[in-house]
Design a protein around this nucleic acid. Structure first.
Lengths: 332, 332
DNA sequence: CTGAAAGCGCTTACAG
DNA sequence: CTGAAAGCGCTTACAG
């Protein structure tokens, strides 16, 4: 395989210095139109391609960003990845994809190699227990944008979906259609400081002066069976319950099953709202109403935030918030 | 932000040459245990991290691979990506992810930047119409592994799932359970040389001496509605039809609907087998039997094939074939 | 408008 | 077992 074509090759062919070719390649000012044309012709003829490693070595910029996800097979991430990739490319950046497999140690190793590879910055959806290490990474020189986290550091930005707001919207909707006895089925895995759906749920309930006795929020395993059991509990404990908000759509499917089993019609007797907008929610009866995260926007905004940090050297003063929205189907 | 720590920094601190530090970092032979210990201590203390751009510039190796997909949001790809990432990391490589958005021009631009970024090689699932350009890319110095393609070139390897074999397995199963009047609903988008399911279907039918009159294979839009209409056609044209093989699970869902509408019980009257193993297939009644591609293996094997090429300088003599398997659920 | 020199942080090839 | 020199392909900072 032939040696790649270098700046010098082009320069020699044209009879100018490498510096001049470099100027043309990078569209810097400082050459005549005639020179430009001759250099460009030589570039095309020889098939010259700039060497980013050489460029990066001297400029300190690799034109590559990293995206660290806990699990790319989680349907939440591919859409975000796609929109991130598009935004990155529009600005001339490539994207390293890293799957931490939701493991803190692996995430640390991954970020370490980002540092070695010379990534200009990284976007991280932290693995479970992987938030502590991030300050050290930022300290080591890697600008970071975190998704759905809150870490304060001069080289870390936070971009959050308005999950709390989405939960409030669900409750607002329930109230608007006359529901007063509202329950929630949620995940027992979320640590207290990350229970945004629950926080929003409680806040909206309070705002509407709803009674919220103990037992109206049930924390279980966030799967269909968990949702099913929790909903049975709610219906048994509060026979007049007329609305249930679920942590995610998978749980909401279990809620629908429980309602059917208890002879309650959805949404007439009990209105149900899930969270996520998974495909499956549109293949059940009634079709699931749900709060959705705007993945394309999240992807684009994280990249733009990171690139802005590379420019200004500091993160935005406030966490960036991407709105969620309530998609009305049939279950509420 | 402080200047990153270099080999020279470490060398100075220890009082040896940069070359010696380099030897320790790369575990090359040629230093005493005492030197190793002192160098390692300095590395840890200073937090030295090798600069891959510098290393790559001189060695010509970036330790990065590229993966170019037509659409990362297609559920086919995330699992493959995950397993690719795992395999790449095990060998010390990072992974650039590129989404061509199924556009040939974009794919070309992406591969061009792989070349500039200095990727050591790339794995490509070609975009529609994006196969011609690949030889030129390989020629320009980028070793390539193609998924589900057949391009012969001294720097291109092909890794294919045994789709044809999967289709044969479906027909074999139909025959084993006594079916003789078998139809197929397939996609009208596949170009003739890529109709592997159809080829396998025909080959198995011939092997079993099945009658295969015109009209037993129907090509339509590969979605649920297409599957539905095509299956209605089949049932109308061949009232004794007792098995239908579908191009993908989405179409198979349409086939199930058509059977129901025509009063045919699945699998008693008509057995149905799909292709892909999508989640939704397990949420319908009867649960869909289907041919699945072994995504984890595909991901791992493509990476291993690429790395082997980097070593030997040439692709395997034959295309690598990854087996598919038939997953029996309820529809067949 | 153009170029000569230095240097980014490493490894290669050689010498001792 | 160790090191001095050259050079990978660029850009930076300067001079003209």
């Amino acid at each position: 395989m032939a040696r790649p074509v270098t700046l010098d090759d082009v320069a020699q062919k044209v009879g100018v210095s490498a510096r001049t070719v470099s100027r043309v390649v990078n569209s810097e000012p400082g050459f005549s139109e005639e020179t430009r044309a001759r250099v460009q012709a030589a570039i095309d003829e020889l098939g010259y391609r700039p060497n980013f490693m050489a460029r990066g070595l001297v400029s300190g910029r690799s034109q590559a960003l990293g995206f660290v996800v806990p699990d790319i097979t989680n349907p939440f991430f591919p859409q975000i990845t796609r929109s991130m990739h598009r935004a990155a490319r529009q600005h001339g950046y490539s994207l390293f994809l890293c799957d931490s497999e939701d493991d803190g140690r692996e995430q640390a190793a991954l970020l370490d190699s980002m540092l070695s590879q010379g990534s200009d910055g990284a976007i991280v959806f932290p693995a479970i227990g992987g938030e502590q290490q991030l300050m050290a990474v930022a300290e080591a020189g890697l600008p970071l944008v975190l998704m759905d986290s809150h870490v304060t550091h001069p080289r870390i930005a936070n971009v959050n979906s308005d999950i709390r707001g989405g939960a409030e919207m669900a409750v607002d909707h329930f109230v608007n259609v006359g529901r007063r006895t509202i329950g929630m089925v949620t995940s027992h895995h979320s640590p207290p400081q990350r229970r945004w759906r629950e926080t929003g749920f409680r806040a909206a309930a309070k705002r509407h002066n709803l009674d919220m006795p103990r037992g109206r929020i049930i924390r279980v395993e966030p799967d269909t069976d968990g949702g099913y059991r929790a909903a049975l509990d709610l219906i048994n404990s509060f026979p007049t319950i007329d609305a249930i908000f679920a942590y995610n759509d998978t749980m909401a499917l279990g809620v629908l099953a429980a309602c059917t089993e208890k002879g309650r019609t959805v949404p007439d007797d009990i209105a149900v709202i899930g969270f996520d907008g998974i495909e499956l929610g549109q293949f059940v009866t009634p079709k699931l109403s749900t709060v959705v995260i705007d993945r394309p926007t999240v992807g684009r905004v994280t990249v733009e935030t990171l690139l802005a940090m590379l420019d200004t050297g500091e993160p935005p003063a406030e966490p960036v918030v991407v709105p969620t929205s309530l998609v009305f189907m049939e279950s509420a």
